[in-house]
Amino acid sequence: MGFFFFKRFSEEDKKLLKNLKLILDFKPKILELYKVVFTHASVGRNTKNNERLEFVGDSVMGLIITDILYNKFPKADEGRLSILRASIVSRQSLNVLGENLGLDQLVDYKNTSGNEIKNLSGNALEAMVGAIYFDRGYHSAKKFVEKLVYENFDLEKLLEQNKDYKSKLLQLIQKFKLNITFNTYENMESNEKNQHFLCELCLDDRFLAEGKAWTKKEAEQKASKQALKKLSHLRLN
Results as ranks from 00 to 15, higher is better:
9 F>A: 07
13 D>F: 08
13 D>R: 10
14 K>N: 05
14 K>Q: 14
16 L>T: 05
22 L>C: 06
22 L>Q: 14
24 L>G: 01
25 D>W: 04
27 K>A: 06
27 K>H: 11
29 K>A: 01
32 E>K: 12
37 V>D: 03
39 T>S: 12
39 T>M: 09
41 A>G: 02
43 V>I: 14
44 G>W: 13
48 K>T: 11
52 R>K: 14
53 L>H: 11
55 F>G: 04
55 F>S: 13
57 G>D: 06
58 D>E: 15
59 S>T: 11
61 M>H: 01
67 D>I: 11
67 D>E: 15
75 K>G: 00
75 K>H: 11
76 A>V: 05
80 R>Y: 04
82 S>Y: 11
84 L>D: 03
85 R>Y: 04
85 R>T: 09
87 S>W: 02
91 R>N: 04
92 Q>Y: 12
93 S>A: 15
95 N>S: 12
96 V>E: 08
99 E>G: 07
99 E>P: 00
100 N>D: 02
101 L>W: 01
101 L>H: 07
102 G>K: 11
110 K>C: 07
115 N>M: 12
116 E>M: 10
121 S>M: 10
128 M>V: 06
130 G>N: 08
130 G>Y: 08
135 D>G: 08
137 G>D: 11
140 S>E: 15
141 A>T: 11
145 V>H: 08
146 E>Y: 10
151 E>H: 06
152 N>S: 10
153 F>M: 01
153 F>W: 07
161 Q>K: 15
163 K>T: 04
166 K>L: 13
166 K>E: 15
171 Q>D: 13
172 L>M: 12
173 I>K: 07
176 F>S: 00
177 K>R: 11
181 T>L: 11
182 F>H: 04
186 E>M: 09
187 N>R: 04
188 M>W: 03
192 E>H: 03
195 Q>W: 07
195 Q>N: 12
197 F>T: 00
198 L>A: 07
199 C>T: 15
200 E>H: 06
201 L>V: 07
206 R>T: 12
208 L>R: 06
209 A>D: 01
209 A>R: 02
210 E>W: 02
213 A>L: 03
217 K>Y: 09
219 A>P: 03
220 E>Y: 02
221 Q>L: 02
224 S>P: 03
226 Q>N: 15
231 L>E: 08
236 L>A: 08
237 N>L: 06
